[in-house]
């Protein structure tokens, strides 16, 4: 079905094919997959690489997504991935994504293999670097090897030197921190990653506030009282007061009381 999109003649309303593809990207950015599909369907002529990529990408956001359409999209991604340009990297990345999240029966091993191949072929491409982040998620939770939690985290930490983009490094550190608490690993190891996330910054939404609280609370649990106090005070300064502020204030009061008690006990 996807191959039938390549047709002769110009777009219906006179817009150039590249205008139509640009408009389709905008619609996809706005989550309007069906409109993007219709827009691309109007494009005539021998499709460019970008147009073929767009036509395959729209499949993952155009309901109903069927296995047949996903397989057809994968064939296009695989074909485009043979190049060496940005589109090749995008296509290779998306081919791996199909195996990780889009197919109803995921194949994590295959996804990991494709991410690794992309990173080897175009290591500096953003899509290869993003692929390493996704590979990290597979290693943390679903790939059979390495098996133990500490080994899983170590394998993902080993990916960090290959990720040059700071924001993507941040995302990996955050995942390492979250996986660390999930698997019950030592708090100091977890905190090292969360501190790095905080240093890089730029998170939005609920996660930003969660991180600010976690830094204080986990520092406290790890016995780093001075750091906990600083993080809690920063939290109270930076975020609108809410229910968690009450607990944070109580934590600060308890720490102050403990310190006062310790002072009293000193000669």
């Amino acid at each position: 079905m996807l191959t039938t999109w390549a047709r002769a003649a110009a777009p219906a309303d006179g817009a150039s094919p590249s205008d139509e593809v640009g408009a389709a990207w905008q619609l996809m950015a706005d989550h309007l997959g069906r409109d993007a599909y219709v827009r691309l369907d109007r494009v005539r002529g021998v499709p460019t690489r970008e147009q073929r990529l767009a036509q395959a990408v729209v499949v993952v956001d155009y309901q109903p997504v069927t296995p047949e359409r996903l397989h057809a999209a994968e064939a296009i991604f695989a074909d485009l991935a043979r190049g060496e340009d940005e589109i090749a990297a995008q296509a290779a990345y998306l081919q791996a994504r199909l195996y990780q999240v889009h197919y109803s029966q995921p194949d994590y091993g295959r996804a990991a293999e494709l991410y690794r191949a992309l990173a080897a072929r175009q290591p500096d491409s953003h899509w290869a670097q993003l692929g390493l982040v996704k590979l990290g998620l597979l290693q943390l939770y679903v790939l059979p090897e390495p098996a133990g939690p500490a080994a899983r985290l170590a394998a993902v930490a080993a990916l960090l030197p290959r990720i040059k983009e700071e924001k993507l490094q941040r995302d990996v550190h955050l995942q390492l921190g979250q996986a660390g608490t999930f698997y019950g690993l030592p708090l100091d190891a977890v905190l090292a990653h969360l501190i790095e996330v905080n240093r890089i910054g730029g998170l939005v939404g609920q996660i930003e506030e969660d991180l600010a609280i976690q830094l204080g609370e986990l520092s406290l649990r790890a016995g780093h009282y001075a750091a906990a106090r600083t993080y809690f005070e920063t939290y109270l300064r930076d975020f609108t007061p809410n229910l968690r502020s009450v607990t944070v204030r109580r934590r600060l009061a308890e720490m102050a009381a403990q310190e006062a008690k310790a002072q009293e006990g000193r000669p």
Binding site: W25, D30, V60, D61
Partner: peptide
């Protein structure tokens, strides 16, 4: 669907 939006 975020993959398509990210590519967009």
């Amino acid at each position: 669907p975020q993959d398509a939006a990210i590519l967009g």
